[in-house]
Design a protein around this nucleic acid. Sequence first.
DNA 1: ACGGTTTGGACAACCACGTTGTCGATTCTA
DNA 2: TAGAATCGACAACGTGGTTGTCCAAACCGT
Lengths: 155, 155
Amino acid sequence: MAEAYELPLLLFAGFRALIDELHAELARRGHPDVRPAYGFAMQAIGPRGASASEIGRRLGVSKQAAGKTVDRLAALGYVERVDDPADARRKLIRLTPRGIDSLTQSAEIFEILRTRWVAKLGAGRVETIESSLRAVVPGPNYPVDVPGWFGILAG
Amino acid sequence: MAEAYELPLLLFAGFRALIDELHAELARRGHPDVRPAYGFAMQAIGPRGASASEIGRRLGVSKQAAGKTVDRLAALGYVERVDDPADARRKLIRLTPRGIDSLTQSAEIFEILRTRWVAKLGAGRVETIESSLRAVVPGPNYPVDVPGWFGILAG
DNA sequence: ACGGTTTGGACAACCACGTTGTCGATTCTA
DNA sequence: TAGAATCGACAACGTGGTTGTCCAAACCGT
């Protein structure tokens, strides 16, 4: 008899556990100041680069918010701003080699973490979690404006 | 063949979907300005009340952060501060009837949402998700300082 | 080819939520 | 009873969001 209120807490705890372990390992591998928000942003930039406005749209946040995150990412050397020769308004945000490395490492670490879950739970249960969640969540493009969302909502 | 990076996203999307639906329904039921953070805080206060410092400890945040949340909760009429007759330093934070109502309604809504998942996935799969997550997450007292955590970490 | 509309990026002000550090007042304890 | 711990308040700050404004550049219909 599970209490219904536990379900969201367990989902969050699972998410948080994975993200915490990811960043602990990322820190060990030379990326101590990557934060969860940065990972999502770099994911949104992608290997081909993107403008700040595009990043905002992909992340579900305003272009200003995306721009600020890019500032921090640039200060840490994970991305660089390049003038777009085809459009003088745009500044293309590109991952630096360091940025690409953090993404590559993250992918590796996620593999390891999932493997660890499979070892504990069995492949079947992990696949059940994945396919079940895919069936109940609205869509694949869920915005990741976590802090703002948690605070605001229902306004 | 699931990509490993999907697992955390799916967990988060599941969490977020539940919380979003909770607050949409809460708004319909007369609590339009309860935010996710407030629900956690009121949960931490509990029916017997608590001091700001206690709330902070239960939530895994500083007493100052807890105090600020209490301010907002008090401004909305969900809690009240009462002088503790047994300890002149303490101010007891107590849920008002409105606060209690929001918690009661939340519990009801979580039941409904879980039932909806059971209808879609079957009771077995939902129970698999719950028991599996219980097995892989560190402990039951996971801190819920979501916004701060998302931003900071690995500092 | 020109003029109105979009768009991109920068800047400012603001809010929510967290953090440390400090402080006076009270309570606990050795 | 003196020293240590705790409570709540206040201030300053950081991070991640939001609007609104603004200009320059690009787009598009006439």
